[in-house]
Simulated scan of single mutants.
Amino acid sequence: MIERRFCDVKQWRGLATRYDKHAIVYRAAVLIHAAIAWAKQLSDTP
Rank of each mutant, 00 (worst) to 15 (best):
Lys21His: 06
Lys10Trp: 05
Ala37Leu: 07
Ala34Gln: 10
Thr45Asp: 07
Ile24Ala: 11
Leu15Gly: 01
His22Ala: 14
Tyr19Thr: 06
Ala35Leu: 11
Leu15Lys: 01
Arg4Gln: 14
Leu31Arg: 11
Arg5Pro: 02
His33Thr: 15
Asp44Glu: 13
Ser43Ala: 09
Trp38Glu: 14
His33Leu: 09
Tyr19Arg: 13
Asp44Ala: 12
Tyr26Leu: 15
Leu15Thr: 00
Gly14Ala: 02
Val30Tyr: 01
Ala23Asn: 07
Ile24Lys: 06
Gly14Tyr: 00
Val30Gln: 02
Lys40Gln: 11
His33Ile: 06
Arg5Phe: 14
Gln41Asp: 14
Asp44Pro: 04
Ala39Asp: 08
Gly14His: 00
Glu3Cys: 08
Met1Thr: 09
Cys7Val: 15
Arg5Cys: 13
Ile32Arg: 08
Gln11Ser: 09
Arg27Phe: 06
Gln41Ala: 11
Pro46Ser: 05
Ala37Ser: 14
Val30Asn: 01
Arg5Thr: 15
Ile36Arg: 04
His22Asn: 15
Asp8Glu: 11
Asp20Trp: 00
Thr45His: 04
Lys21Thr: 15
Ala34Gly: 04
Ser43Val: 07
Val30Trp: 02
Ile2Cys: 07
Ser43Gln: 07
Leu31Met: 13
Thr45Tyr: 05
Arg18Tyr: 05
Thr17Val: 13
Gly14Arg: 00
Cys7Gly: 05
Ile2Thr: 13
Arg5Ile: 15
Ala39Phe: 06
Tyr26Asp: 02
Lys21Leu: 14
Trp12Gln: 03
Tyr26Lys: 02
Leu15Ala: 03
Leu42Trp: 04
Ala35Gly: 05
Pro46Leu: 04
Asp8Val: 05
Ile36Asn: 05
Asp20Asn: 04
Ala23Asp: 14
Trp12Cys: 11
Ala34Pro: 01
Thr17Gly: 08
Lys10Gln: 12
Phe6Leu: 15
Asp44Ser: 14
Ile32Gly: 03
Pro46Asn: 09
Arg27Lys: 13
Asp44Asn: 11
Asp8Ala: 08
Leu15Glu: 00
Arg4Pro: 08
His33Met: 12
Phe6His: 10
Ser43Thr: 05
Arg5Tyr: 12
Leu31Phe: 06
Ala34Arg: 05
Lys40Glu: 09
Leu42Met: 09
Ala28Glu: 09
Val30Thr: 07
Val30Asp: 01
Arg5Ser: 10
Ile32Cys: 06
Ala29Thr: 01
Val9Ala: 04
Gln41Lys: 07
Met1Ile: 09
Asp44His: 10
Ala28Ser: 09
Val30Lys: 03
Met1Arg: 03
Asp8Pro: 03
Lys10Cys: 14
Leu42Lys: 11
Gln41Leu: 07
Arg13Cys: 06
Gly14Phe: 00
Arg18Val: 03
Asp20Thr: 01
Trp38His: 10
Thr17Ala: 08
Leu15Ile: 15
Glu3Asn: 12
Ile32Leu: 12
Leu15Pro: 01
Ala16Lys: 11
Ala39Asn: 12
Ile2Trp: 04
Trp12Ile: 14
Leu15Arg: 00
